[in-house]
Design a protein around this nucleic acid. Structure first.
Lengths: 343, 343
DNA sequence: CTGAAAGCGCTTACAG
DNA sequence: CTGAAAGCGCTTACAG
């Protein structure tokens, strides 16, 4: 197979120097318009493309971002959290819109992901996504910071202020979910999800939940909180524990849709009617939420906007511009599991 | 911020030449074991990483694959086909397992995606995924071929034998879906999905469907075939057309789960009971399939295996090894929309 | 407006 | 086993 054309080949064909070819292809006004167009035409005809390795090496930037999706090791290999998939879609689009390429990688939390991409000049910066145990990777973030890696992280605000975090307003989401349940006349609301600092996003949702309760002079009851990570089976288990406890409850606020769907399955199995006996609200609005039976009332995170902001913020960081952490507002999506009138 | 360490910095610290550093880091047996280890230790300590742009430029390969997901322009921007998302996950994993990086990009069919990645040396090869109108991009494949780009395409077998295609056995999927419906006593089966050569995958499913009918001496009825692309709304529309026609039918074979779910919504709206009045089978087994109401019987494609085979085949192609197109068998997943006994 | 030249950071024949 | 040197294909000061 014919080896690829280089700028020297183009120069030869155009009867100019290689430097002129390089300028013309970058559309430099330094080059005479006519020769510029002639060179561009020849390049197109010869199907010439600038060698990115060479130009990146020369300019010392890659015009590439890396997306690291950190999976909880407990997660079933085949089932990626649909929320991340949705974020992936929007990040891909936003990256392309900015003229950057996107390197995607799924990583176990345990592995040594912290450095490779930017250090090896494959990417100018990194976007981190992950629902893992926060404590497990806090020190990795410190390391990234120490290396001056450009990165932005999805999720709750970080206590180290140097870490740029972008996320949805989990506290507000917890508030509006709980307010909605209260407005439906529910008083004994169980919370399914980790509420410790190991999962700052879930914790913020829980804190918002508690705040909404207090607004109505209801004292949050720790007996009604059950740990769960964001999987269907974990939600199933947590709901079973709740049922086994024999404590009174008329609603469940699940820290994620996956948890809610697992809880739904547990309730159904025990003959509990949703929403008549127990109302449920989830979190994320993943695609399956609207197809659950009953359809799942949930807190929607605007992934479209989130992807755009993540990419924009990271690019600003790379360019040395001013950036601040940001919280994106969430929306309540009312469906049949809590609030929508029955068909 | 301190600029990144280079192999020269390491060489200086280790008191050897830069060439020796390069060799040591690639673990070349040419270098004395002791010095090799000393150099590696220093590199680690200084957090040195080989500059990929430089090494790729030098070796003329990128150790990166590109994944191009071509979206149908009619598709809603926010809703990526969940089946692709699932493929994306498995391809990412398979790529990482082979020590390659993955560049991901979503493209409109209309845009000029054909060449850029490999031509610019950003990727060694391309994986193409897409449910668009086949005719629209057939000529782009020709162009890729003409440029000697290494690529593998997901889907139906291509009539140009030089195109390496990997896909699930759509014909077999159509056969087993239809056999299952027939075994349930259904006789008048509508097919929702394009059956022309514009969508070779759907066409193969349709042909399998027809073959299964013929096995039972049933003549396929073109009146029962309705075009649809793989979206929920297209399925909704197609089912409505079917209902409006007033033709007798007791089952629907939808060319994709998304179509099936749209059809389910249309039937529900018209008061048709699924599965009692009409049974439905979809295709893909996307996550929502099991949460549909009733849960959706469907043909499962093994995306895990598919991703592995796609990546392996592409790598073989790149290395100049023998590769052949491949069809992966599909499985019937029986749920309540057709075949599973009611709870 | 154009060209000759340096240099980005590696890998790898070549010589010893 | 090790080093000096060439060269991958660009971009961009520098000189004209």
């Amino acid at each position: 197979m014919a080896s690829k054309a280089t700028s020297i080949d183009i120069a030869y064909r155009a009867g100019v120097s290689q430097s002129t070819v390089s300028r013309a292809l970058r559309n430099s006004p330094l080059v005479n318009l006519e020769t510029r167009q002639r060179i561009q035409a020849i390049a197109k005809e010869m199907n010439y493309k600038v060698d990115k390795n060479a130009s990146n090496l020369r300019t010392q930037n890659s015009h590439t971002l890396a997306l690291l999706i950190c999976e909880d090791p407990t997660n079933d290999d085949s089932m990626i959290n649909p929320f991340f998939l949705s974020m992936l879609g929007s990040i891909t689009r936003a990256t392309a819109q900015q003229g950057y390429d996107l390197l995607v990688s799924f990583q176990q939390l345990s592995s040594d992901w912290h450095a490779d991409y930017e250090d090896s000049n494959k990417a100018d910066g990194i976007i981190l996504l992950g629902y893992g145990d926060y404590m497990d990777y806090a020190h990795k973030l410190e390391k990234l910071l120490a290396q001056n890696t450009h990165f932005v992280i999805w999720g709750a605000e970080h206590n180290n202020k140097s870490v740029l975090s972008i996320g949805c307003d989990n506290h507000q989401g917890g508030v509006i979910a709980t307010q909605h349940m209260l407005a439906q006349g529910r008083k004994h609301i169980a919370f399914l999800g980790d509420s410790s600092s190991h999962s700052p996003e879930f914790r913020d949702r829980y804190l918002g939940h508690c705040e909404a309760l207090k607004e109505q002079q209801i004292k949050p009851n720790k007996q009604l909180q059950f740990d769960a990570i964001s999987t269907e089976s974990s939600g199933f288990d947590a709901a079973n524990k709740l049922l086994d406890k024999g404590i009174e409850f008329d609603a469940i606020f699940a820290a994620s849709d996956l948890i809610a769907i697992g809880a739904l399955r547990a309730l159904k199995k025990r003959g509990v009617d949703v929403p008549n006996d127990v109302a449920i609200i989830g979190y994320d609005d993943i695609p399956v939420a609207s197809f659950a039976n009953p359809s799942l009332t949930t807190i929607k995170q605007n992934t479209q906007l989130a992807g755009e902001i993540l990419v924009e913020s990271l690019l600003k960081l790379i360019r040395g511009q001013e950036v601040a952490p940001m919280l994106i507002p969430t929306n309540l999506v009312i469906r049949h599991s809590c609030g929508a009138s029955a068909d």
